[in-house]
Amino acid sequence: MSRKLKAVVVDDEANAVDFITSIIAEYCPDLEVVGKAYNVSQGVATIQETRPDLIFLDVEMPAGSGFDLLEEFPDKKFDVIFITAFNHYAIKAIKFSAVDYILKPINITEFLEAVSKVIQKRSDSKYETGESIKVLLENLKSGTPSRLAIPTSDGMEYLNPKEIIRIEADRSYSWLYLAGNRKILVSKHLKEFQELLSDRYFFRSHNSHLINLKFVRKFIRKEGGYIEMQDGEQIPISRNRKDLFLIHMSRFKG
């Protein structure tokens, strides 16, 4: 890296700010802390003054949230690593948008992994700084996230989950089969997609398959049972999942 990335730390807990600053000083030679802030208004002023490349941002603070802070910057020329509690309501939206985050209490290994991911992304000439943050804020406003960030070999693609017909496991990867006869190979386990899409219209029919109920054409009982999708594919269904599948379909409104 030709120059150090400028970092700002925003957290209402002084101990957390000091801890993050000390980790960066000891383990992150590619980063330089150029500002610290302890609430939203201080954070906005510090970011405007220092113009950082990376912000370590607490989600929940007095008199505003980290998301409120981000709304003050229409043109987001920085990356963000969120700092949040495990059970925070925004965790799923953060994951949905492929924004990096660290859970409290902060684990040094996880912290360094998050920093490494940001540095790696910024080294890609096709990477669009701030795009995932924009998607996150859109998803939070909508209540039900409508854009799913998918890392691809070319960068990041943002999909509406309604476009996904089915997802098939391929060892540590997953194939996303999309409307329009497209498919994408993603470096994510099927379980990760199941967790993200579990409160929608997706169903895990088999150890290797997650299907969109909107695209189910019919259920065939013969030969052990299978599901025929609207794209013509026949998807196996585990014996112990059949009854649950039929219950889901009977309740499904499309």
Rank of each mutant, 00 (worst) to 15 (best):
V216N: 02
Q194M: 06
E128L: 13
A7K: 00
Y27E: 12
A149L: 08
E32F: 08
E128G: 03
F202N: 04
I119N: 07
N160Y: 08
L210G: 01
E110Q: 14
P29G: 04
E168P: 06
S116W: 01
E60H: 15
D124A: 10
Y226I: 01
V135L: 02
L69A: 11
D75E: 15
G64W: 11
N160I: 08
K141L: 11
F56M: 07
K183I: 01
K77Y: 11
E233I: 05
K117E: 13
V44A: 12
K218P: 00
R147T: 03
K191H: 12
I83G: 01
N212A: 05
V216A: 02
V9H: 00
R200Y: 14
Q48R: 14
E223H: 12
V118C: 05
I165A: 07
E223V: 00
L159R: 04
S250G: 13
I235C: 06
K117Y: 05
F67A: 08
R239A: 14
K222H: 09
S65L: 01
T152H: 01
R221N: 10
L213N: 03
A7I: 02
I119R: 09
T109C: 03
I165P: 11
I211C: 10
G225N: 07
Q42L: 09
H88W: 00
S41A: 11
D100E: 15
Y127T: 10
F202E: 10
R221L: 06
E223A: 11
P74D: 10
V34N: 08
F219L: 13
N107M: 07
T129P: 04
T50D: 02
K134S: 15
S208K: 12
Y177R: 08
S174H: 04
R166H: 15
I81D: 10
L136I: 07
M156C: 06
I119H: 02
Q120Y: 09
R122V: 03
R200F: 13
E128M: 13
D170Q: 10
L70P: 09
K95L: 12
Y158Q: 00
R3W: 11
I91S: 02
I23F: 11
V44D: 00
Y89H: 13
I106L: 13
I24W: 08
G130S: 07
L54D: 00
R204L: 11
Y177G: 01
V33S: 05
V115D: 03
G64I: 12
Y158T: 04
